[in-house]
Nucleic acid binder design. Sequence first.
DNA 1: CTTTCAATTCGATGTATATCTATATTTATA
DNA 2: TATAAATATAGATATACATCGAATTGAAAG
Lengths: 189, 189
Amino acid sequence: MTSEDHSMLVQFLKVLADESRLRILGILTSRGASVEELAAALSLKPPTISHHLTRLRELGLVRMRPEGTVHVYEFNVEALQRVNLLLKPEKLAQMANVEGDAWERKVLRDFLNGEEVKEIPASRKKRAVILSWLVEKFDVETRYAEADVNAIIKRHHPDAATLRRELIATHLMERENAVYWRTPQKQNL
Amino acid sequence: MTSEDHSMLVQFLKVLADESRLRILGILTSRGASVEELAAALSLKPPTISHHLTRLRELGLVRMRPEGTVHVYEFNVEALQRVNLLLKPEKLAQMANVEGDAWERKVLRDFLNGEEVKEIPASRKKRAVILSWLVEKFDVETRYAEADVNAIIKRHHPDAATLRRELIATHLMERENAVYWRTPQKQNL
DNA sequence: CTTTCAATTCGATGTATATCTATATTTATA
DNA sequence: TATAAATATAGATATACATCGAATTGAAAG
């Protein structure tokens, strides 16, 4: 549904993003006009105008009323209003959220080999993704000794010391005295 | 000024009329993002994303903030609002009205030879243009006998009878008993 | 200072499409 | 019914541009 809005919006914008068609719409705001009139007004050939009007009509931006052998085209203001409604940040956000964590999945694919961390990413952001994956190996309500933490990490990567420090530094885990625990999750909105 | 708005609007729409760029903006509504993140999210290569961001940035639709070696891009909502303001019927009308009667001038060029009507257009609309030109040859406040009307018309075309009848039929002139006069102009809005 | 990593720039390629001429279709008129 | 006029369609051409791989730039880290 939102992705329908999305491609709908793209199509509208593609049709509107043309100098000739905007000028046509501009003329049609004040009066209906025939193909020949528009051709003269824009200094373009009738087939070109016909082409533009077809594209505008496919999206309902103009309507056609035959009058004898002449076709009078009129502007449909409603359709333009619908475009304006879609062209807002909130709507764009909705449309984009069809997916969002493709990047995280890619990082996991790149740096994991099954349950093994192939390499600790140098980039902070990528490291954060791996650490988020790693912290899932710990229970939320359990309290661990440092040796337990190291043991669990070592199932996935030899450098337990570095990773343990990173988990604390990124606040994914917390420590008091010699006791470690996983930081309770905060809810997503 | 209005034509600057015009080409401005076309450029904005051309930049917005792209699926990838709309998705980028959609993502950036909720959070700033790096080129790599966007590339992963859209399943496109970084150079492609860079290209899109450049185009968006040229129009001020996004802003860039370097953060270490990573470039964080953010959405500039204001710029989008400006597009919405331009994408209204009134604005389109303003932009189009740089000229408007090119068609009428073309018809006159085609069917007149100086003060002589070369041929009476068969098309109703074109005939109307020629008749509007012809009726200007009459004073507004004068009352004419049929012979006078014919004489004036014959300065421009031999078939005075037909043209006289057309002037009446199109209500450009009126007749009562044997007296003719030019219909008073109604004002334009 | 060298290496590394993210971003950008460059060059190439394929696709989309605005515009034109020529032809066909449809409606009105003689 | 045949001709003329206004649109529409078909086919051709040229331009714009989205996308990619390769090379370059610029910043951070060892």
